[in-house]
């Protein structure tokens, strides 16, 4: 029962975040790149003011799977690295924390673009 409630929260919050993105697209007609940038910045901001973890506690994947989570990891990495490494952390923190995601996106994109070609649309 509890696990079902957990998943319901994930669904509701994740869906709401995505619907917010769709609302932005409809009302302002902006491109998908700008949507992604906006949500990454929201994530960075939420982490910077130390709110993200509270949301993440009950929203779980609902906030971590949207690109907001990516932004939060960038900021979390930078903050953590500054605390341990000092000034150097400003430069190393963000990308270290998100290295997995970025490397995966680049690596898989490279492999699949060698295998597949773009399809005609109907």
């Amino acid at each position: 029962m509890e696990i079902f409630l957990d998943y319901l929260w994930v669904f509701l919050i994740g869906g709401a975040v995505c619907a917010l993105g769709e609302l932005l697209i409809i009302t302002t007609n902006i491109t998908s790149a700008r949507i992604l940038v906006t949500f990454v910045l929201i994530g960075v901001f939420l982490e910077a003011i130390n709110v993200f973890d509270y949301i993440s506690d009950f929203a779980k994947a609902g906030i971590n799977v949207p690109i907001v989570g990516f932004g939060a990891s960038l900021a979390k990495g930078a903050i953590g690295a500054v605390k341990t490494h000092g000034f150097l952390g400003i430069f190393t923190g963000g990308l270290t924390a998100t290295a997995g995601g970025i490397a995966a996106a680049i690596g898989f994109a490279f492999i699949f673009s060698l295998i597949f070609r773009s399809h005609t649309k109907n």
Binding site: C18, S32, P66, I67, G69, A105
Partner: peptide
């Protein structure tokens, strides 16, 4: 629309789609 752009999967799509396209 936004449902598949906002999740991390949309980020992945926006990297893979141009690289497949400009192969």
């Amino acid at each position: 629309g936004g449902g598949s752009i906002v999740p991390i999967t949309g980020f992945s799509n926006s990297i893979t789609s141009p690289s497949v396209e400009f192969k």
